[in-house]
């Protein structure tokens, strides 16, 4: 999926996550700290949910959405995203495992998404561990 880092969306995200640092909302503060413009909050890439069909994607992986929970998420940052950045996210399955659980086998999927800017540099990487509980 691809998206632009947008000023209004960054402000909305900062407010929704109770962020207090004006670097997300005040361009002067951001520029004084060496950025081209206001900076996105650390988990801003979650907005990419707006740009993909979650149900279709879950179905493609053969998962039952009603049994899926996100176990953990890890982000690795190379640089903060800045308003105006054009970001392309590419997600891939890196592990697909079965692990014994109390009510049957759990399917544990590890997904990795690289977020790349217009110059082709990776800005951030997200790793999600998604767990599908056994059917009952």
């Amino acid at each position: 999926m691809s998206f632009e880092v947008e000023r209004g969306k960054v402000r909305e995200f900062a407010r929704a996550t109770f962020a207090e640092d004006p670097v997300y909302t005040d361009r002067e503060v951001a520029v004084a700290r060496g950025h081209a413009d206001v900076v996105a909050t650390p988990t801003y890439v979650v907005v990419s949910l707006h740009y993909r069909d979650q149900r279709e994607w879950v179905a493609q992986l053969g998962l039952d959405i009603g049994r899926v929970v996100v176990g953990s998420v890890r982000w690795t940052y190379r640089r903060p995203m800045v308003v105006g950045d054009m970001i392309v996210g590419t997600r891939r399955v890196v592990k697909d495992e079965r692990k014994p659980g109390s009510g049957g086998d759990l399917r544990v999927l590890t997904l990795e998404t690289d977020f790349v800017d217009a110059t082709g540099q990776i800005v951030a990487t997200e790793e999600d561990v998604v767990i599908e509980r056994p059917s009952t």
Binding site: T17, T41, V73, Y77
Partner: peptide
């Protein structure tokens, strides 16, 4: 994440992991 970044500065955050 926002709370940690408010403390250290978003520029310093190298990775963040949650369970």
């Amino acid at each position: 994440a926002a709370w940690i970044a408010d403390w250290c500065g978003v520029e310093r955050l190298a990775d963040f992991e949650v369970r």
